[in-house]
Amino acid sequence: MTLGVAVIGTGKMGGDHVRRIATAISGARVVAVADVDEDRARRTAADLDGCTVHTESASALAAPGVDAVLIASSGPAHEETLLQALALDLPVLCEKPLTPDATGAYRVVEAERRLGHRRIQVGFMRRFDAEYQQLKAVLDAGDLGRPRMLHQRHRNTVTPGHFTERMMITDSAVHEMDITRWLTGHEIAAVQVLKPAPASPQEVPDPQLVILETTGGVLADVELYRNTGFGDQVQCEAVCERGTARIGDGHAMVVQTAGRWGGAIDQDYLTRFRAAYDREVQAWVDATRAGRVTGPSAWDGYAAVAACEAGVQAQATGERVKVELADC
């Protein structure tokens, strides 16, 4: 069976997923797209045979041939589409965040629980990145002993004008919230955000330092640098009882010439994590065709959003803020 997928949202992320399903993975085809910008949706679907175009998610989910849904719309629209998909018992791959707020995310968790089986995979693509998988395997093997600290960097070349200070937490640090949970097997217990002095009262402090405490006693720091000007960098070093392990240095090739040495730095997250996105969507398609749901769960999405809520509060107040989680 070729899986018929409805893609909700055809912006930068959704458009890349449409390209991915059409050209980079097997076992699926895009049969419907939806976007509030109908012209953009039509441009996205122009080369897809038999793909219907919609301006509302409900009509796209009800379109002929839809077996599953990939949600790549803006975060505030996720909950409505997720609940629609669950009502139709459709498998879902939902880009982060699950929803923008923990209350809405928990409503989704509860709706899936009432359904009686998993239907949702959340799009935390770093879990499908080869380097992160290697680091996870090293930590799980236990040869280095227990992890005690994680040092992480999340740097962007430039962020768009609408990217607010709180989005440094909700749209950037959310990845570290999830990856810290995944690497350690612990929940995030508390968050603190430290900022350098801004050059002017109007300037958003950049970079910022996020400190995460886990329920198992691991400390994780995250440097968030939203406008480096030189490229996208994502790095992680695990400091363990008997050694350290580091990923993300990007030294696949080093060039030496004319008295200099160096290499290229990715300029965009879609380039840095292209292979991870491919593996993520392929794994989702394969599992869905086999009648299974794997990967990050709705609970993972909820736990990351709850940690981000604490992070936004910590960012605004400068205080250490505890993460409030419902019972699992």
Rank of each mutant, 00 (worst) to 15 (best):
A275F: 14
V254F: 05
R274Y: 12
G250T: 10
E203Y: 09
T214R: 03
T228C: 07
R40L: 10
A32S: 11
V293N: 10
A189G: 12
T288N: 10
R274E: 10
A85V: 05
F163N: 02
V92H: 04
A298D: 06
D178P: 00
D49N: 10
V285W: 03
L61P: 07
E319A: 15
R40G: 14
G27C: 11
K12D: 09
C236K: 02
R119V: 07
N156V: 00
C94H: 05
G318S: 09
S73M: 06
D286M: 08
E80T: 14
A326F: 06
V69P: 03
V193S: 06
A77W: 05
G50D: 10
V174H: 01
H186Q: 07
A22Y: 03
A238F: 00
Q313M: 12
A60Q: 02
A316E: 15
G217Y: 09
K195S: 12
K136E: 14
V222T: 06
P147G: 00
I71E: 04
D140I: 03
R148C: 11
P296D: 10
R292Q: 15
L209W: 15
L139P: 04
Q233L: 15
A287E: 08
D249W: 05
T271P: 00
P201L: 08
E110M: 03
T215L: 06
M125K: 11
A111G: 06
R118G: 08
R126D: 05
P201R: 07
R118F: 07
A22I: 02
G9Q: 07
G65P: 07
Q267L: 12
A24P: 00
L150W: 08
R107D: 11
V7F: 03
T170S: 14
D49G: 13
V53S: 04
V234H: 05
V321S: 03
E324S: 13
T44G: 01
G14D: 08
R126P: 00
Q208M: 14
G15F: 02
R320S: 14
T257D: 15
A32D: 01
V255P: 00
E165L: 13
T271V: 15
Y277S: 05
H117Q: 14
E223H: 11
Q256A: 15
K322N: 12
A46G: 02
K12T: 12
Q233S: 11
D221M: 11
E131F: 02
E237I: 13
P97Q: 04
A63L: 07
W261Q: 13
P198V: 08
A6I: 03
R320D: 09
L82C: 02
A105R: 03
M13D: 06
D327N: 13
D129F: 02
M1R: 12
C328V: 14
A68W: 01
A24K: 07
G259I: 05
G216R: 08
C94Q: 05
G259D: 12
H151K: 13
D268P: 00
M168E: 08
L115G: 12
V222N: 02
D101M: 07
A77I: 02
I211Q: 07
V66G: 03
G262V: 08
P198K: 07
R292W: 02
L135C: 08
W299N: 04
V285C: 09
A22M: 08
E309M: 02
M168D: 05
A245C: 09
A199K: 11
W182V: 04
E95W: 01
E324R: 13
H78Y: 05
R242S: 15
G14M: 04
L98A: 01
G248L: 10
M125I: 07
A276G: 12
K12Q: 15
